[in-house]
């Protein structure tokens, strides 16, 4: 048998597939939009409030630089970490960077398969596949797949789960 607590250095291997390359652009845009808001607020305030200008404008500048740097580098890192895989028995996804997370959902316990496309996601031609099980905390999300690939994956998952009985409710 496998794994009888030999205390070895068993590790989870990375899933096989990377996301679509376009996801980097999508993440970058999100990052930029996220920093643009506060920077704009600080900038406008700085333009109107003369006494606080020496404080506000440098803060806005620093935030802009940080945001830009994060937008350039973080998505590249994320792209390396975020991976997914679908075998005949399970869906396996790795996400996160500072808090890395591996999620495994067995095929036999999958209840629903949804495909979601946000407005920004659509402009990049990407989709998110969400796989839910009977657990309220067991949903597995694969973000940033190509439209066609996501549709095909969702269909494949639906077919496989339809043929496996029982969902352990």
């Amino acid at each position: 048998m496998t794994g009888t607590g030999s205390g070895g250095t068993a590790r989870l291997r990375p899933p096989n597939n990377t996301l679509d390359r376009r996801v980097v652009g999508w993440w970058r845009t999100q990052c930029l939009l996220l920093t643009a808001g506060p920077v704009a607020v600080l900038g406008v305030l700085g333009a109107f409030l003369a006494p606080a200008r020496p404080w506000l404008l440098p803060a806005a500048g620093a935030l802009a630089v940080l945001g830009a740097a994060a937008s350039v580098f973080l998505p590249l890192w994320w792209f390396r970490v975020h991976r997914w895989e679908v075998t005949d028995d399970a869906v396996y996804v790795r996400t996160g960077f500072f808090w890395q997370e591996w999620r495994i959902a067995p095929m036999s316990r999958i209840q629903t398969v949804d495909t979601v496309r946000g407005p920004l996601e659509q402009t990049f031609g990407l989709s998110t596949v969400i796989v839910t099980t009977a657990s309220s905390k067991g949903a597995v999300k694969i973000e940033g797949l190509d439209h066609a690939l996501a549709a095909e994956l969702a269909e494949r998952l639906t077919v496989i789960t339809g043929s496996t009985p029982g969902d352990a409710t």
């Binding site: 205390g7 070895g8 590790r11 895989e85």
Partner: peptide
């Protein structure tokens, strides 16, 4: 939990679920 021992425990508790994704030395 200790990384290797914890994963082995998870694999033992629910056989077959984790095994295909484990890299064993």
């Amino acid at each position: 939990a200790a990384e290797g021992e914890g994963l082995a425990f998870a694999d033992e508790a629910v056989p077959g679920l984790l095994a295909p994704f484990l890299d064993r030395p």
